[in-house]
Design a protein around this nucleic acid. Structure first.
Lengths: 216, 216
DNA sequence: ACCTGAACACCGTTCAAGT
DNA sequence: ACCTGAACACCGTTCAAGT
C-alpha cells in the first residue's frame, strides 16, 4: 500500500531545490486560461498572460500545447467534460416522468451555459474542430450529446414520446433549442433578470416544443 | 437636370491628377473586409490587409472608423440590412397560409446564413454591441426581427396562430430555433450535403414546433 | 526533459508630417 | 480634409542555450 494522494500534490518527492518547473504545467495553464477568459473575455485572452500568471515564460507553454488553439481546445474540452457530467447526473437522478427529465436536462444545460458564459463561448466560438483536429474534444462533445439522446430514447421506450423522428433527432432538436436560447440571452436579445428567470422563461417559451415530444 | 449617375463613379468631376484618396473609402473598406472575412474567416481578418487590398495605408482606415471593432460592426450591420430586406420580401410576397409564410421566412433566414457563413459569424460573434455602442447596428437587427414579429402577428390576427404567448415571443421562439439550427449546421454537428437539404431537414425537424404555433 | 531569453514577423493604434 | 510613414506596445511562434 502506498500512502500517497492520487491527485498531484508535491507532498511526496519534493522538488530538488525549488525547481523552476511546475508540477503539472499543462493543467495549470488550462486553469489560468479559464480564469482569464472568464474575467476578461475570450477575445482578450492571451497565451503570454496565461503563462505569466502561473509564473512561467510564455515559450514554456509550447512544451505542452502545440499552439494557442490547442490550449483553447483544452479549455473547451474541460467545459464539455463538466457539462456531460452534470447532464449525466440529472438524467440518472431525476425521478418522475420523461417530460420532467427533459425539462431538468434543459435546465442543467442552461445553468451551465449561464454560469460560465465565457467558457461556453469558447466551446462554440472559434472553429477549433475544423479538419478533425482534437479528437478528444470531439469525444467530450459526443459524451454530452449522448446523455440527451439517452433521455429521449428512454422517453420513447416508455411510450411517452413520439417515435418519429428518432431519438437522435429529438435530441438535436432540444440541443438546437437550448443553444439558440443561450445565445439570445447572452447577447441580451432576450432580457432576463437572473438565471432562474432565464430557465423559467425558457420553459414557458418552449412549452409547445415540449408538447411536440408527446406521443400522438 | 444634371446627367450624372447617382452611384459614385468617377465619371463626373475627375480626380485632379489621379489623387491618392478613394471615392468612398469607408464603403470600400467594408467591401474589402467582407471579402477577406468570407475567404479567410473572421478571426484571420486584419485591418491592415483590408486597407492594403483597397490600395491605402492602414492608418487611413482610422479616418473613417474609430477602430477595428467599428469596421466589423459596419460589416455586421450590412448583413442585417440585407437580411431584413430579404425577410421583408418573403413576408410581403408569400401568398398562402400563415404557416407557409413562417416556413418561407425560416427558409430565407437559413439561406442567408448558409450563403454567408463567415459574415453570419461576425453578426453573432464578437460582442460588438456590448454597452450599446453602434445604435445603428442595433436598429438594423431590430428591423430584421420586426419582420418576424409582423408575420406572427398576422397569423394571430387571421386566427390561425395561438394568441398566447404574444407575437413577439413566438418570433423569439422562431429566431432561437433558426439560429440554433444554423450554428449546429455550421459546426457540422448536423451534417447536410447542401443548403437545400439543410432547409428541408430543418422543416421536418421542426414540424412539431410549427404545429405548436397552431391555435388550440 | 523542461524552461529561459532573445529574436522574428505581424498586429492594432497613434500621430506628426505631407498634399 | 484625407492620407502617409514611422513609431509604439503587444501578440503568437520559434529556437539555441541553459539546468
Amino acid at each position: 500500500m502506498v500512502p500517497c494522494s492520487v491527485v498531484g500534490t508535491t507532498k511526496g518527492r519534493r522538488p530538488k531545490k525549488q525547481s523552476y518547473h511546475h508540477g503539472d504545467l499543462a493543467r495549470a495553464l488550462v486553469g489560468a486560461a479559464l480564469e482569464l477568459i472568464e474575467t476578461r473575455g475570450p477575445e482578450a485572452f492571451t497565451l503570454r498572460e496565461a503563462a505569466a500568471s502561473v509564473g512561467v515564460t510564455h515559450g514554456a507553454a509550447y512544451r505542452h500545447f502545440e499552439d494557442k488553439t490547442a490550449l483553447l481546445a483544452a479549455v473547451s474540452q474541460e467545459g464539455y467534460r463538466v457539462l456531460a457530467a452534470r447532464l449525466g447526473d440529472v438524467a440518472s437522478k431525476t425521478k418522475g416522468s420523461s417530460h420532467e427529465r427533459v425539462r431538468a436536462l434543459a435546465a442543467a444545460y442552461l445553468d451551465f451555459a449561464l454560469e460560465h458564459p465565457a467558457q461556453y463561448r469558447v466551446m462554440w466560438g472559434p472553429r477549433l474542430n475544423e479538419d478533425g483536429r482534437f479528437p478528444s474534444l470531439e469525444a467530450a462533445i459526443q459524451d454530452a450529446f449522448d446523455v440527451v439522446v439517452g433521455v429521449m430514447k428512454r422517453g420513447q421506450d416508455e411510450g411517452v414520446f413520439r417515435k418519429q423522428p428518432e431519438a437522435r433527432e429529438l435530441a438535436i432538436g432540444m440541443w438546437v433549442t437550448a443553444h439558440g436560447y443561450v445565445e439570445l440571452v447572452a447577447r441580451r436579445r432576450i432580457k432576463v433578470k437572473s438565471r432562474r428567470v432565464a430557465v423559467e422563461y425558457f420553459e414557458t417559451l418552449f412549452e409547445p416544443f415540449l408538447d411536440g415530444l408527446e406521443r400522438r
